[in-house]
């Protein structure tokens, strides 16, 4: 399989101490949607910025469309499209003017760019608003405009940095629809970062889970889920002081039990049938189950498995992440 992005030992250190991206290796295949999944501050945007040649790598190499990101930066730039995290369209200009400006930055002749801009605006359903100033656009419309801008040079690879950040659930789903359609229409390769698990799950062909600058898992979402080897049953018993780990383990098809206080996280095969067995076993021994849930593995479970912490928990400790993020932003903007 032909690989359009190859990274080898790609590393970025900020201020000589903060390792944002730590020797990552990966290859992105032609025509796939490749997702970089991780919490805020994991190094996703830093990786993208190195690949799109706006940030220098401290160590390691990468090629995009066969061009070296360090030595052939200009060639890389002309074969990629970028949809940044922020809304970068100029608010004082209209949607059409913004797209044409992007086209000019690629040196696309006006004749060609006018036609393309109108096609793209049609595609992202902004034709009606193309002569309105961007300051009147909603968040979803701006995101679509960014998408259209990123496609104006018919890129071979489109980089999307958190394409649905800050959008409500409905708009997010609609944006996924656009992304899928764009990919089908242009048959290009997409490299996207996200910290939404559902997004990675429903959009990406392959996902790399990145945490603290390192890739800790890389595979298709299904394979990652399967690698967990079963369903996850979570149950809580009333008796806080008791330890029923051993008891649960005696049940057939139970693969692993993890205990936290009175809550047990049980990895089972064929959960629908095994769960009632565990339940009756516990009740027979006089334990009272106060809470029970059975989940098919999601990427969140995968993430939990590989990093030992829940992504949602991680978001809960936002303060620490926030300060790290600020440090990185500052360093990045230097």
């Amino acid at each position: 399989m032909e690989e359009v992005i190859v990274a080898e030992g790609l590393t970025r250190v900020f201020n000589k101490s903060l390792v944002a991206v730590d020797h990552v290796d990966f290859g992105v295949r032609k025509g796939e949607i490749f997702g970089f999944l991780g919490p805020n501050g994991a190094g996703k945007t830093t990786t993208i910025n190195m690949l799109i040649t706006v940030l220098k790598s401290t160590e390691g190499d990468a090629t995009v469309c066969g061009f070296d990101i360090k030595k052939e930066a200009s060639d890389v730039r002309s074969c990629i499209g970028v949809v940044p995290q922020e809304y970068t369209a100029d608010e004082d200009l209209t949607g059409l003017e913004n797209i044409l400006l992007c086209a000019d930055l690629y040196g696309i002749p006006r004749k060609v760019s006018k036609q393309r801009a109108n096609e793209l605006l049609e595609l992202v359903e902004l034709s009606k608003f193309k002569d309105k100033k961007v300051e009147t656009y909603s968040g979803g419309m701006r995101r679509r405009l960014e998408l259209a801008c990123g496609l104006i040079n018919r890129p071979e690879v489109l980089f999307l940095d958190e394409p649905t950040l800050g959008l409500d659930v409905q708009t997010r789903r609609a944006t996924w629809g656009y992304i899928k359609r764009l990919k089908e229409e242009f048959g290009m390769t997409l490299f996207m970062t996200t910290h939404y698990l559902e997004e990675a799950d429903s959009l990406c062909d392959r996902v790399a889970i990145i945490d603290q600058g390192k890739i800790i898992a890389l595979d298709t979402p299904d394979a990652l889920k399967e690698s967990l080897g079963g369903d996850i049953m979570t149950l809580a018993i009333e008796q806080k002081e008791a330890d029923v780990t051993g008891l649960i383990e005696t049940t057939p098809r139970v693969k692993e039990v993890k205990k936290q206080d009175n809550i047990y996280r049980v990895k089972v095969e064929n959960g629908e049938e095994t769960a009632p067995q565990i339940l009756s076993l516990l009740m027979a021994k006089g334990y009272k189950v106060v809470n029970l849930s059975l989940t098919k593995p999601t990427l969140d479970e995968v993430y939990l498995e590989y990093t030992g912490k829940s992504m949602r928990e991680e978001e809960a400790t936002q303060e620490s992440m926030f300060s790290k993020r600020i440090t990185m932003r500052r360093a990045r903007h230097r």
């Binding site: 799109i52 040649t53 730039r77 002309s78 970028v82 922020e86 970068t88 930055l105």
Partner: peptide, 12 residues
Amino acid sequence: LGFLNKALSTPV
């Protein structure tokens, strides 16, 4: 506002 970064990612 990120415009600079976007401009930098183009061959301009």
